[in-house]
């Protein structure tokens, strides 16, 4: 049994927004106007120490959205992916308030709580409907996990900064990278640059 996670290697991310576009394209059927499941944020933009990171739902192990939802529409798959049922969702917005990563989004902003059904990253694992069904495509987008593939955003990442997959494998890849890069600034006078 895997535990699926995203990891964004900030030393590699070049803020190309390819992951955002890949996600939009892959899940197009489910994404109403204005919704973007993934976003890239750049800290210290244009200054020394500039760092970009791609973020979407982190598929938390003890997910705040799931714990706060009054309709109880979230569930965790055997792979540790946090999914939700749009038929039960009442669009109250509690999950958006509780999520530390700002992942849940709503198609509308009408008065009297009519936000519409919440949408968020599914780790390209669809939803509670039958795998590959029309209903699943329309409500949740792609189900690549059921096809044995990983999320489109990570697959399309040009620098292989965004990693997705079983936590153990992902962290092994990252650990190898860190070992290869060294740790600049950890020892006096030792400042190797990435690729130098």
């Amino acid at each position: 049994m895997a535990v699926m996670k995203f990891l964004c290697d900030t030393k590699r991310c070049i803020e190309c927004n390819g992951c955002v576009t890949a996600c939009k394209n892959e899940n197009d059927s489910a994404l109403e106007w204005g919704i973007q499941r993934r976003r890239v944020v750049t800290i210290n933009d244009g200054e020394p120490g500039e760092t970009s990171i791609s973020v979407a739902c982190m598929h938390c192990t003890d997910a705040p959205c799931q714990a706060v939802c009054p309709a109880d529409c979230f569930y965790r798959t055997d792979d540790g992916i946090v999914l939700h049922n749009k038929d039960t969702c009442i669009g109250c917005g509690y999950c958006l308030y509780a999520c530390p990563f700002g992942a849940p989004q709503f198609p509308k902003k009408g008065a009297f709580g009519s936000r519409g059904k919440m949408d968020k990253c599914t780790f390209c694992a669809g939803g509670p409907e039958k795998n590959f069904s029309e209903a699943e495509r329309e409500k949740y987008g792609a189900n690549r996990i059921a096809e044995g593939k990983l999320p489109m955003c990570a697959e399309m990442c040009s620098t292989k900064s965004l990693l997705a997959g079983d936590a153990e494998i992902v962290s092994n890849i990252y650990r190898e990278r860190v070992a290869a890069r060294g740790n600049p600034g950890a020892i006096w006078g030792y400042t190797p640059k990435v690729g130098a």
């Binding site: 944020v41 990563f101 700002g102």
Partner: peptide, 19 residues
């Protein structure tokens, strides 16, 4: 930080208050 994403607080990566 800076982001091209729209929506309120899109530039905030982590906000633990709601949790």
């Amino acid at each position: 930080g800076y982001t091209v994403a729209q929506g309120s607080e899109a530039g905030v990566l982590i906000n633990v208050v709601g949790n």
